[in-house]
Deep mutational scan, measured.
Amino acid sequence: ETGKELVLALYDYQEKSPREVTMKKGDILTLLNSTNKDWWKVEVNDRQGFVPAAYVKKL
């Protein structure tokens, strides 16, 4: 879809709370919100949640 910003997972991340999502290094995720410098909201496999901003980079 146009207008979607994507990020690349630089590291594996295992969710530690229900508000977070698990990702694997190399995953491409849809970026939903990056206003917080530490935690970015992403969508992966129809799930939305937060990942550490340092673990992903914008494509």
Rank of each mutant, 00 (worst) to 15 (best):
T30Q: 10
R47D: 03
N33T: 08
L8I: 15
L31W: 01
T30W: 13
T22D: 04
N36T: 06
K4R: 13
V51N: 01
E43M: 11
K16T: 13
A53I: 03
W39G: 00
T35G: 12
N33K: 07
K41Y: 15
D12L: 02
A53L: 02
E20Y: 05
V56M: 06
V44H: 15
L29W: 03
T2F: 12
Y55H: 09
R19D: 12
A53F: 02
L6H: 09
L10M: 09
G49N: 01
Q14A: 12
N36Y: 08
K41T: 08
E5G: 09
T2N: 14
K58A: 09
V42K: 00
Q48E: 10
G3Q: 15
D46P: 06
S34M: 09
N36P: 05
K4P: 13
K25S: 07
F50G: 01
W40R: 01
I28Y: 06
D38V: 13
K24D: 04
T30D: 05
K25P: 03
K4I: 13
S34D: 15
S34Y: 07
L31P: 00
V7T: 03
E1P: 14
V51I: 09
V7N: 00
V44W: 08
M23A: 02
K41F: 15
L8K: 08
K16G: 10
D27Y: 05
D27T: 07
L6E: 07
L59M: 10
P52N: 02
K16Q: 14
G49H: 02
L8R: 09
D27G: 04
E15M: 11
E1Q: 14
G26V: 00
V42Y: 01
A9K: 01
P18Q: 09
V44M: 15
A53V: 05
T22Q: 04
R47S: 06
Q14V: 14
A9P: 01
Q14Y: 15
E43H: 06
L6T: 08
E20H: 06
S34W: 07
V51D: 01
K16A: 11
V42A: 01
L29R: 01
K24A: 08
D27P: 00
K57S: 11
E43S: 10
L29E: 01
A54N: 13
W39T: 02
I28Q: 05
P18S: 11
D38H: 15
L29I: 08
A53R: 13
K16H: 08
V56S: 01
D38F: 15
L6R: 10
N45Q: 13
L59Y: 08
V7E: 00
W39S: 02
N33F: 06
G3A: 13
E1N: 14
G3R: 12
L31D: 00
M23V: 10
V7H: 04
Y13T: 01
Y55A: 13
D46L: 09
Y55K: 09
F50K: 03
D12Y: 04
S34I: 06
S34N: 09
N33W: 07
L8H: 04
T22K: 04
G3F: 13
R47G: 05
R47N: 06
E5Y: 11
V42N: 00
L32I: 14
T2G: 14
G26R: 02
Y11C: 15
N45M: 12
L6K: 11
N45K: 14
D12V: 02
G49M: 05
F50N: 04
F50H: 05
K16M: 12
V7R: 01
D38Q: 12
A9F: 01
L31S: 01
L29Y: 09
K57M: 14
Y13R: 02
T35A: 12
K57H: 09
W40Y: 07
K41W: 15
L10K: 06
E43T: 07
A54R: 15
V7W: 07
M23D: 00
A54F: 08
E20R: 04
G3C: 15
M23N: 00
S34L: 04
D27L: 05
V51S: 01
S34P: 06
N36W: 07
K37D: 11
K58E: 07
E1H: 13
E43I: 08
P52V: 02
D38K: 12
R19G: 15
R47W: 04
Y13G: 01
S17W: 06
L6C: 12
R19T: 12
I28A: 03
Y11E: 10
N45D: 14
G26P: 00
E15D: 04
I28L: 08
K58H: 09
A54Q: 11
P18Y: 08
D12N: 08
N36H: 11
L6Y: 15
L10D: 02
K57P: 02
L32S: 03
D27E: 12
N33Y: 06
T35N: 14
A54V: 09
P18I: 09
Y13L: 02
N45R: 14
T35P: 04
G26E: 02
G26F: 05
Y11Q: 13
V21M: 12
K41E: 13
E1R: 10
K16I: 07
W40T: 03
T30S: 09
R47M: 07
K25D: 02
T35Q: 15
W40S: 03
P18K: 09
D27A: 07
